[in-house]
Design a protein around this nucleic acid. Structure first.
Length: 402
DNA sequence: CGAGATTCATGTGAAGTATACCTTTAGGCTTAA
DNA sequence: AAGCCTAAAGGTATACTTCACATGAATCTCGTA
């Protein structure tokens, strides 16, 4: 056994990697130059540049679908501005927060707390009044004379959960500050979102608006080509691989992040197989792998109650012949399951919410429908590729029955 | 036959509760003068 | 008397429960043609 393991390592070391630099393909990588987003980048740069003269820039609201370069462009500019500010000795502070992260910034309290923590202050996870956290935040901000840029990524997620009072409070900060001045940069994937918030809030948040349209197939290919040249060694890419990647991503509203991930995973797969070229087939495999890993990871990190609910849905799906499952059935199974594994059963009310949340996470598909005489319920269906359904079931069993 | 009432199985909103955590305050103990 | 520690009191956010009402189309009812 030991010998075999050693063999694997040796094989691995002997085999030359296909990658020159894998991080180039990772989502966090910021390239030297951003392709095909010139107009957006300059637009934002123009809006934000007053910060370097210690004047408060206008708030910006940025929207565009996933993988259109919003986050990338903003982070890129943030980096540039910071080095510039450093040179010119301008006190500039930039904070980037992703509001989607569960348990980090998905409620008003947690978001403000997280913002304050970015300044090195300790804020307890609960216990303080929200107002108090605001006060601490203001005070911390105002400690020095400076310009502060708050970048709130996926801002629609918090607003959906916590309401728009949050943004209202944030946009009003400036009137309470003596030394510092803040500018809010809101980033949203949801285009409809901006219609659902209070017009007053909206107007104060989006003093300026920047829109990121999707990349088209040609642009995607261009981006991929550039990154691939940096990431891979020569002669590694098979015929038409880039085109295929671009085509896949273009199909999904021009999502560049997805295209890059596809390319990276395809490379990893090819490498693991010991082949020295990335083929079209690898791309197809990569697509499955990505989806599988995403869901597996997601499921593994869910709280027990969510797992139990999901497990019940899977059980129900395989036992019943009908395509759709109802909330009531799921709850029955769930309840039995809880008793069996010694988990405190939650009420149906709560489970109903959990199902809705699972739907939001994209693990299941749940639509409320009215079945006339037969009441109304959620029509639940799994959207998992069958190949991973079994694996998920196994993971859930491991987690639940121990 | 068709308009309106009925019905079912849950969705959904609001308010209440349990829990875990926070700060403040009062009391008790120690210590140094 | 001052200083320090501890425990109780009073307060909050969050996850969950309880209660009560809302939904909305298939089905039923009953008057009418």
């Amino acid at each position: 056994m030991k010998k075999e393991i050693n063999n694997i390592f040796e094989q691995f070391l002997k085999k030359e990697s296909l990658f020159k630099s894998k991080k180039v393909l990772q989502a966090t990588y910021i390239p030297e130059e951003i392709r095909h987003r010139d107009s957006q980048v300059t637009q934002i740069a123009n809006i934000l540049s007053p910060a370097l003269r210690m004047e408060k820039p206008s708030n910006i609201f940025i929207y565009g679908k996933t993988g259109t370069g919003k986050t990338l462009s903003v982070r890129y500019l943030a980096e540039q501005m910071l080095t510039m500010a450093d040179n010119k000795k301008v006190p500039l502070k930039i904070i980037y927060i992703n509001c989607k992260l569960k348990k980090v910034a998905d409620t008003e309290y947690r978001l403000i707390a997280q913002l304050t923590r970015e300044f090195g202050k300790e804020i307890p996870p609960t216990g303080l009044p929200t107002d108090e956290v605001y006060n601490i935040f203001f005070k911390t901000l105002d400690e020095e004379k400076r310009i502060v840029l708050l970048i709130l990524d996926e801002i629609d997620q918090v607003v959906k959960k916590a309401g728009d009072g949050l943004i209202y409070n944030l946009t009003r900060i400036n009137s309470e500050l003596k030394n510092a001045q803040t500018t809010i940069v809101g980033i949203s994937n949801d285009l409809i979102f901006s219609n659902n918030i209070d017009p007053r809030v909206k107007s104060s948040l989006s003093e300026e608006e920047v829109i990121f349209p999707p990349y088209n197939a040609v642009q995607l290919q261009d981006i991929l080509k550039e990154r691939a040249a940096e990431a891979f060694k020569e002669e590694v890419l098979g015929e038409g691989v880039l085109q295929k990647c671009a085509a896949y991503a273009a199909r999904e509203h021009g999502d560049a992040r997805r295209a890059l991930e596809l390319l990276r995973v395809a490379g990893e797969l090819a490498e693991r197989r010991g082949s020295d070229k990335i083929t079209m087939k690898n791309i197809d495999e990569a697509e499955d792998t990505i989806e599988r890993d995403r869901i597996l990871e997601l499921v593994k990190n869910q709280p027990k109650q969510f797992q139990a609910t999901l497990y019940s849905i899977i059980i129900n799906k395989s036992s019943s012949k009908t395509k759709f499952i109802q909330t009531g059935d799921v709850y029955d199974t769930y309840h039995k399951l809880c008793i069996k594994v010694g988990l405190r059963p939650l009420t149906q009310r709560r489970v109903s919410d959990i199902i809705a949340e699972l739907d939001m996470l994209g693990v299941i598909n749940a639509k409320v429908i009215s079945k006339g005489r037969f009441g109304r319920t959620r029509e639940i269906s799994l959207i998992l590729p069958p190949s991973i359904e079994v694996r998920i079931k196994k993971i859930l069993e491991e987690d639940l029955f121990t």
